[in-house]
Nucleic acid binder design. Structure first.
Length: 955
RNA sequence: GGGCACGUAGCUCAGCGGGAGAGCACUACCUUGACAUGGUAGGGGUCACAGGUUCGAUCCCUGUCGUGCCCA
């Protein structure tokens, strides 16, 4: 017996275990070895992470696709795993060390620290995986991977070495985004532009050879800057070549205030005559644009900061070169001063000497590190780069040709825009946690890139012997004895950007570089499901690296879903405190309710504003389903093995088969098209508004009546439709459906492996029975089910008849409510001038209509009795003789209003039909439709007027 | 500054060439034998604004205003 109340928590913990033990989520189940594959690689969450709403949405959608395709008989691989998340994880462990007042990372050294991170990973890394399981994610957990696993690391090394060999990875000294807090370079994508209110300083740079006089503009050039402290590293002033104000000055020099350096005035189109003064100071070592200008005019680059963003001038040869002696005083004063403190000091000094013309408030974009949240410093260092431009070309072509498509399509534009303007990808990070770069340096700094240290040593020794740096004998000795070569070559300390390894995810998880059967079978994957925020970070890189190393796109479809926001539409963030924890919702309403909410709200192209009320509503939906199944059980509904819904005799039963079939089609087509909200809406409507509201209600009299073929058939059909519901709903609400599947009948298989509803009637009853009873764990699921489209059973006659019943009941209820007839009052119903068909129907549905409309009796007459309330049902009059009970004036008003409505309709249509152009131009069927509308409205009006006449007689 | 969305019921959102729908909220009634996490009925919208295309525009086009996001 099904319990009265549905308790998600009980079911969910139990069910997760049952699925796990059954191996239902395993890819490559033997009975599906000939089935088509369906593969999704999970966007690997950070090991440090815990489940947030974005994960919940992302994984719910993936799970819907996987469960759907699994039920359709495919060999599904949902590849799970986690990402080592370089900076994030290192920060977490460092913070932990600090909290526990243990020695910091640098104190304990690299090896010890890494050991600590691994230990931390072993203890806490499983959190998010467990949370995904609670959500019901049907990943093949036996195949879980981690980006720093041995196999995946091997792939990373191999990719690095090969790209290097191909010249697509190189080391370069150029400006990078330097994070002065985390002390590492980061990629462009990890930089967030933040609007900051600052100032624009107008500085006077004295022209060489003219006596500086603050009052005489001829003696200086004014440059505008938002970063006055970088003036220490200025090596030029740029003006626009067509800016006539400055034409005479080009080629001359200015003397850098305070510093005394002599720097040229150059003409360059970079400077914007309309901005500031039109002249701009050039600091090639601390600004990306200035770097380019410097290159064009061969200006020196002077780095004036250290790694932590402090001014560094003492022993700074680049800075001191060619400076007059007095300059050192300034250097001493500013040395080791933080860049912002230095700004104040410098501005104060400049003011003292009249070098500041004015200061304007200025709002501008300032780059910040997305992890550290400090201002990023463009910084001149050696880093490793990927030639993204070259790799991007085939990745662009693949989307252009349709080998990979984006859903919704408009994201392709975003992808193209970025890919076509892609910059070299800085992949080295000055961190410890990550894949250490497989590059070794010889004594003279020469780089040896190799897959292993042995190989690098071999190459290096060979090279240095050849260069006669060491003798062949020394070389051999060093090759033999590691102690002898200690320190001769040293490995690059840096690690790779996390996204470098996640970019390989679609094939590294399948065993690449080994030619594994999995790689053969599951690559390329089917669909990638992800948020738009990582199109650049991840999707683009997978496309580039996947195509380069596998010669095939990594996935054929990229489904981009929305962002989950709070109910006011704000982005959820810890600092705003508006984060809704999905696990709290799971605790309170159940995983199924949360999943269904997310699916129902996942309309393409719009963000999700999540409200708990909505979740509560879908929890209620689960309860509704639960009770419908309970009702079926209480009425002894079960499905005989040979039951064929298309052969049902009862109109009501044929009707629900018809509706179920339509719903199957709607749900299937919607999921196929990634219209999750439509799919959820279709099944929701079917369960609640069709199955519960009408089918079960209409079936009650039969169930309460005497045993017989009709009752037997109805019981079977209730069970059949219930099973169809459980199947259709399973991808959305896996827990409750699996539970109900188990408790409503004796089953041979779990719902998770049960075939998706097929076209009703397409299999013989023997075949149907066989499919139903086949145990997928040890037998073949007939491949035929893959060929079948979802339901095409249709019965318009049944639809018309049940439609009439529904309309009649609704009309009576409505008028009763309007006339304030208490529910306890049973009234008679008279069908006036009913057609033979109506009479027959009324007799067939006598019990039901009486019950649902609270009638005492149904009879027929040529015309409605005097003083009766009259309503139109499908063109015929249904009358409730309520003389004395009803308010005649109110009823008269009601009828007049109805007549007015009908009149309005007629007028509207008449106007249309009178328009010659409409009749001439509109499609024939539309004109026909309009004519029919007019007929119907006219008939309605006539009947209503008759009704009104009769009412008047009574009063 | 460039790009992409979005302005539809009180709220959250579907719809998209032929006089507009859902959920929640609201109002009234109902402890009717699955379900009060329920049932029945009801109110509520010049589909942001202005032009244009069309026989016909909430839907297509242009512009305006407003909101959000991405990139400089």
């Amino acid at each position: 017996m099904i319990e009265k109340n549905y308790q998600p928590a009980d079911i969910e913990s139990r069910m997760a275990q049952i699925w796990e033990e059954s191996g239902a989520f395993r890819a490559g189940r033997p009975e599906r070895k000939d089935a088509p594959t369906f593969t999704i690689v999970i966007p690997p969450p950070n090991v440090t992470g815990s489940l947030h709403m974005g994960h919940a949405l992302n994984n719910t959608l993936q799970d819907i696709l996987c469960r759907f395709e699994r039920m359709r008989g495919k060999d599904v691989l949902w590849q799970p795993g986690t990402d080592h998340a370089g900076i994030a994880t290192q920060m977490v462990v460092e913070r932990q060390l600090m909290e526990r007042q243990e020695p910091g990372r640098r104190d304990m050294g690299r090896a010890k620290f890494l050991e600590r991170v691994w230990r931390w990973k072993a203890e806490s890394g499983g959190t998010i995986v467990n949370q995904l399981k609670r959500l019901g994610a049907s990943c093949d957990w036996s195949r879980e991977r981690f980006t720093m696993d041995e196999g995946l690391s091997k792939a990373v090394i191999k990719v690095f070495v090969e790209l290097h060999r191909q010249g697509l990875i190189y080391k370069d000294k150029r400006l990078v985004n330097w994070d002065p807090k985390l002390l590492t370079a980061i990629s462009d994508l990890e930089v967030q532009q933040v609007e900051v209110k600052g100032s624009l300083w107008y500085l006077r740079y004295p022209i060489e050879g003219r006596q500086f006089d603050p009052a005489d503009p001829k003696t200086f050039v004014v440059v505008a800057t938002t970063r006055p402290e970088t003036m220490l590293g200025d090596t030029g002033v740029a003006v626009h070549p067509e800016d006539e104000r400055y034409t005479d000055l080009v080629g001359m020099h200015v003397i850098l205030p305070l510093v005394g350096r002599r720097i040229p005035i150059v003409a360059d189109e970079y400077s914007d005559p309309d901005k500031g003064s039109g002249a701009v100071k050039i600091t090639p070592a601390h600004d990306f644009n200035d770097f380019d200008v410097g290159n064009r005019h061969s200006l020196p680059r002077i780095n004036v900061f250290d790694k932590e963003g402090r001014v560094s001038l003492i022993e700074n040869e680049d800075y001191l070169r060619g400076l007059p002696e007095g300059a050192l005083m300034l250097a001493e004063e500013l040395h080791n001063v933080d860049r912002y403190a230095a700004r104040k000091k410098i501005v104060a000094r400049l003011e003292d000497f009249g070098f500041v013309e004015k200061v304007e408030p200025n709002t501008h974009m300032v780059p910040h590190g997305d992890r550290s949240n400090v201002v990023i410093e463009p910084y001149l260092t050696d880093q490793w780069y990927v030639d993204a431009k070259t790799l991007a070309q085939p990745a662009i072509a693949a989307v252009r040709s349709g080998a990979t498509t984006f859903v919704p399509k408009n994201w392709e534009k975003t992808y193209f825009d970025w890919m076509e303007n892609i910059q070299p990808w800085c992949i080295s990070r000055q961190l410890w946690w990550g894949h250490q770069i497989p590059a070794w340096y010889g004594p003279d700094g020469k780089v040896f890139v190799a897959e292993t240290e042995e190989e690098a040593v071999g190459n290096a020794l060979g090279y240095y012997v050849e260069q006669e740096v060491i003798t062949p004998e020394q070389g051999e000795e060093m090759a033999r004895d590691p102690a002898k070569r200690e320190g001769f070559i040293v490995r690059d300390e840096d690690v790779l950007d996390t996204w470098f390894s996640s970019g390989l995810w679609p094939f590294s998880t399948l065993g690449w570089p080994d030619e594994t059967p999995e790689l053969q079978r599951y690559y390329p994957t089917s669909t990638l499901v992800t948020g738009f925020d990582i199109i650049f970070f991840w999707v683009a890189r997978m496309m580039m690296l996947g195509i380069h190393f596998m010669d095939e796109v990594p996935f054929s479809t990229v489904y981009i879903h929305a962002l989950v926001r709070d109910e006011k539409g704000a982005k959820m963030s810890k600092s705003k405190g508006n984060v809704i924890d999905p696990l709290h919702l799971v605790d309170e309403y159940g995983a199924d309710a949360l999943r269904f909410t997310l699916a129902a709200m996942a309309a393409q192209g719009r963000d999700i504003k999540l409200s708990t009320q909505r979740v509560e509503g879908y929890r209620n939906f689960a309860t509704k389903l639960w009770n419908a199944c309970r009702f079926a059980e209480m009425n002894g509904c079960s499905l005989p093995g040979d039951f064929d819904p298309t052969q049902a005799k009862q109109t009501l039963n044929r009707w629900i088969a018809h509706e179920a079939s339509r719903t199957t089609r709607e749900v299937s087509e919607a999921i196929e098209a990634y219209r999750f909200n439509d799919a959820a809406g279709a099944i929701y409507r079917f369960v609640w508004n069709v199955y519960c509201d009408w089918y079960l209600e209409l079936a009650k009299p039969v169930l309460l009546g005497e045993d017989g073929p009709a009752k037997a058939e109805t019981r079977a059909m209730i069970a059949w439709a219930r099973d169809e519901i459980l199947k259709l709903l399973h991808p959305f609400m896996p827990f409750i459906t699996e539970e109900l599947w188990a408790v409503t009948a004796k089953r041979d298989t779990l719902l998770v492996l049960t075939p998706w509803p097929r076209k009703a009637g397409s299999l013989s009853s023997e075949e149907l029975a066989q499919v139903v009873t086949t145990n997928p764990s040890d037998a073949l699921i007939p491949t035929v089910i893959l060929e079948l489209d979802a339901g095409e059973f249709s019965d318009p006659e049944a639809e018309a008849e049940i439609g009439w019943v529904v309309d009649l009941v609704t009309a009576i209820r409505s008028v009763r409510a309007e006339m304030n007839i208490p529910p306890a009052t049973l009234t008679p119903l008279v069908l006036a001038a009913a057609s033979a068909e109506t009479k027959a129907r009324a007799q067939r549905w006598n019990d039901v209509v009486k019950r649902l409309s609270r009638l005492s009796d149904i009879s027929f007459a040529d015309s409605a009795p005097e003083g009766a309330v009259q309503v139109l049902v499908r063109g015929e009059v249904a009358a409730l003789p309520l003389k004395g009970v009803i308010d005649l004036a109110a009823e008269r008003a009601r009828l007049e209003k109805e007549i007015g409505k009908a009149d309005g309709d007629i007028k509207r249509v008449d106007a249309k039909l009178a328009n010659e152009k409409f009749v001439a131009n509109a499609p024939e069927e539309i004109v026909e439709e309009e004519k029919e509308k007019r007929e119907a409205a006219l008939a309605r009006k006539t009947k209503l007027q008759e009704a009104l006449e009769r009412l008047k007689k009574a009063s």
